[in-house]
Design a protein around this nucleic acid. Sequence first.
DNA 1: CAAAATAGGGATACCATGTATCCTTAATTG
DNA 2: CAATTAAGGATACATGGTATCCCTATTTTG
Lengths: 162, 162
Amino acid sequence: MILKSQVEWALHCCAILAGLPDGRYLSTKALAELHGLPKEYLSKALQSLSQAGLVHTTLGPSGGYRLARAPAELTFLDVVEAVEGSGRTFVCQNIRANNPCRPKGFCDSGSCAIARIMWEADEAWRTALRKATFADLGKTLEQEIDPGIWAGTFDWVLKRAG
Amino acid sequence: MILKSQVEWALHCCAILAGLPDGRYLSTKALAELHGLPKEYLSKALQSLSQAGLVHTTLGPSGGYRLARAPAELTFLDVVEAVEGSGRTFVCQNIRANNPCRPKGFCDSGSCAIARIMWEADEAWRTALRKATFADLGKTLEQEIDPGIWAGTFDWVLKRAG
DNA sequence: CAAAATAGGGATACCATGTATCCTTAATTG
DNA sequence: CAATTAAGGATACATGGTATCCCTATTTTG
C-alpha cells in the first residue's frame, strides 16, 4: 500500500504556490520544469487540486495556478485526499457474514470490531495530516533550505509567474 | 491507496486463532470455510504470517495454524506488516533534487521536510495499530457478538481443530 | 506400512490501477 | 489573429493484487 507519486508532486507544487505573492499564477510548465516532472502527467495532479477547490486557475498566456486559500488554511490532508481520494485505506468486506454458523438472513447490529480498529488507525493518520499546514511547512523550509538556493528558486519562480 | 483484502483475512484468522485453546491447530481449509474465502489464496496470507513468525504450523491431518505468542502480545501492526510489508506508505523520490536552480552535485544535508511530515503521519497510523492487541479484540468481540453465534462458532472451530 | 491430509511454494493467468503520452477544445492575452 | 494556457478524453504500457492449479515434503490416521 503506497501512495501515488502524484501525491508527492502535488505537495511540492502546493509548497511552491504557497510562497507565491498574492495574485500571481504559476503554470504547469513551470512547475514541471522546477521539479523535473512530465508536464502532461503532472497536469492531471493539478487538475485534481483544481477539482477539489484547493487551487484557482486562469487560462491563456500568464495563466496557471495559485492557492485558493491562505497557506495556513491548507493542510496536507486536503492535498492527499484531493489526489488520492477521501476513501478509507481499509475496506471492510464484512466477511464475518460468511460464517456458516449464522442463521440465514441474520443482520449485524453494528460494524465489525476489526474494521473499527483499522478505521481508528486510519483516522489517526488523517489527524496528523490535518495538523500539517502549508504555512508551517513554509517556515520549516525557509529554515532548512540553503539560502542561496532558496533565493534563487524564488527568483526563478517569479520570473515565470504570470 | 487501499490495503489488500488479505490484510482483512489475516486479521480475522488471527482473531479466531486467538480464541483457540492451547496446543490446538486450525487448518487453512477450516479458516477458509469459516470466512467464505478461497482456500488456495487465503493460504498465501497465512504463509505470510508464518514467515513473519506470528503463527506456528504443523503438517499432516489435524495440522494447521496456531498463534506463536499470547494474544496480548500480538498486535494489529504485526499482522498488517506481515501481509502488507513494513515499508512506509509514502515514498520520497527526492524531486527537490531536480530543481534547476541548484548547483550541480549539491548534496542535501537532511531529509525532505515534506517527506518527514508524511512519515510522521505514517508513524501515527502504525502507533494506533501497535496499541491494538488481539487480547483486547477478543474481549470486544465477546461483548458484541450474538451469544448464540459466538458459542456455535466456537463449537464449529473446536470440532475441526487438531 | 499405506493412505489421506496438511503446509509450503512455484507457475500461470487475469484484471484493476498507476504511470505516461498524445490530442482536441475553450478561454485568455497581447 | 496568433500564441499560450487549463481541462479533459483516448490510448498504451507496466506493475501489482487476485485467483487458480499443481507438485513436494511431512505427519497423522487406519
